[in-house]
Amino acid sequence: MSRYLISRIGQALVVLWAAFTLSFVLLQALPGDAVLIKFLNPDFGLSQEQIADIRASYGADRSVTAQYLHALGNVLSGDFGYSIQAGVPVRQLLAENLPATLRLACLAFLAAVVLAFAVTLLSTFATFAWLRSAIQVLPSLFISLPVFWLGIMLIQIFSFRLRLVSVINPGPWEALILPVATIAVPISAPLAQILMRNLDAVAHQPFVTVARAKGASRAFAFWRHVLRNALLPTLAIAGVLFGELLAGAVVTETVFGLNGIGALTHKAVGNQDAAVLQAVVLFCAVAFVVITLFVDLASPLLDPRLRSKTGAPA
């Protein structure tokens, strides 16, 4: 087990390094850089020589290799550099924006899980066949809604028409309702789809018939035998959904004017604020790696077939 863990952590480090290097290369490939974008602004009224000096002070005039090694060395020592646009350390920017995004992401994920379960259970247990088939269509609908459009529609309907949720100076929790819903709806869709498909497949397994033949009621067989088996494959897509969550946060924070990593990313892209973008990419990579590792470690606990063999007969 520990050998497995060490090799997994080694793999994770390689992934992080690759993410850092790839994002560095891509940012370098873009024309222009953050210094030019900020200081070429005519408001500053700087001459070419002055801009060249500023670039030199940021180290932007050195060779790409030197910049890369410099940035890599800094990151290894925990220094993410300065945001050129904001003029503050990137670490500080991340620390300020992370809690808001984490709160949004966690609530949205929770809401997505609840929504997915509600849709799945209704599509399985609803009394009328027409209702069941109507609900079964929902995930395909949800998955095809663009996040920005959904956010704007929710504001239109719930804030401006129905006046249920205020968007102007809302309370701290009130402000989260619509953004959470906006992210949760498209994320719940693949979860619900996978759950529904698995529930259907597992319900037709012979072991469910055997459970019923023991005298188990339909509900008992569902909760004890069907559900847990159907949940296993959904765990595997948790990592992919996390990516959706981050992508959703970028759009949602922008649409709803919230502060967070998403909004920070949005601004940093506009300004080619390389240090900030590098830090965000690294943060996402770390989160991805940790979640995937967690899923891989948790799966054997839930599914005994994935545990290492313990002298089982062939």
Binding site: P206, F207, T209, A213, G215, N229, P304, R305
Partner: peptide
């Protein structure tokens, strides 16, 4: 079911809950 009538299924490979 189970008490007065019980079942021995075919295909023992898939007739037990794997987890």
């Amino acid at each position: 079911r189970g008490a007065r009538i019980s079942l021995i299924p075919q295909d023992p490979g898939s007739a037990l809950n794997p987890i």
